[in-house]
Nucleic acid binder design. Structure first.
Lengths: 139, 139
DNA sequence: CTGTATCCTTGTTGATACTG
DNA sequence: CAGTATCAACAAGGATACAG
């Protein structure tokens, strides 16, 4: 989760711009996988198809640093480490759910737009009227 | 906006995971800057502190491809190109606003967690009890 | 004014191997 | 089991120069 610097915003722009970004590949999915309760390292790595432990470690460390999860080491052999959502992590869960609902609702339109765009850029149509949308020189 | 592949999700994991990601640095800000109406290329580049036109072009092309904005070329000299939100782009505006509200509410807690984490990892405290959170070997 | 074309630096992700 | 260390591949972001 990366913080965007306020100095990137000009006074002319609305200043209530999303100041953070869940910028990495796995964070949101890890949070969702912790929804039902604490999970061990392997219980996250294997089912999520994360091939290497390094990537999962990075993700978990970042989430722990930002107060989204706790990391608990149990003094046993073999070692057992459990990760669990904090209240802040559960709050993030709400935001993720909202994003999911948005995607459920609007993803079809987005995909349709991509198809249309691909069709438009594939063939350089010659009968476009001026003052209209996007007839650019083809690549 | 990057699509996450469904095959990354295991049946054991909840399947309603956020399938898209506003993964780039400028998209959300461009969308917000278009909230009040159409804007020209320079009206976006200059106030947003985007140093190079290439980056803005990439961002605008991606948003156009995904159906979030339209690009209109006016047949004038000097050339005038205006970008405007579509209904889908306005829908995204709602999601961004929700994310902003989340950040307003929870960013202090996140920053506090970062401070606490930095303090924890800076000094290798020696009086930690077992079965507790995160005493790792320091780096 | 509105871009495009290269080049370069950096950050992110992943592969492989090894450790307490 | 739960990681760490190192290296390699790739993509994103930006600097600079140039064009329609």
């Amino acid at each position: 989760m990366e913080l965007l610097r306020p100095d990137m915003f000009h006074p002319a722009c609305p200043n209530s711009v999303m100041p953070i970004r869940i910028g990495d590949k796995w964070s949101a999915m890890v949070v969702v996988c912790l929804e039902q309760g604490p999970r061990r390292f392997s219980e996250l790595r294997v089912p999520m198809h994360i091939t290497t432990p390094k990537v999962l470690t990075q993700t978990l460390r970042a989430l722990e640093r930002d107060g989204m999860i706790t990391r608990t080491v149990h003094a046993e052999v073999p070692p057992r480490v459990e990760y669990e959502l904090t209240s802040l992590g559960r709050a993030l869960l709400d935001l993720i759910a909202t994003s999911c609902r948005w995607a459920d609702e609007h993803l079809p339109a987005l995909l349709a737009a991509r198809d249309a765009y691909a069709s438009r850029t594939a063939e350089p149509v010659s009968l476009a009227a001026p003052e209209t949308t996007s007839p650019r020189p083809g690549r």
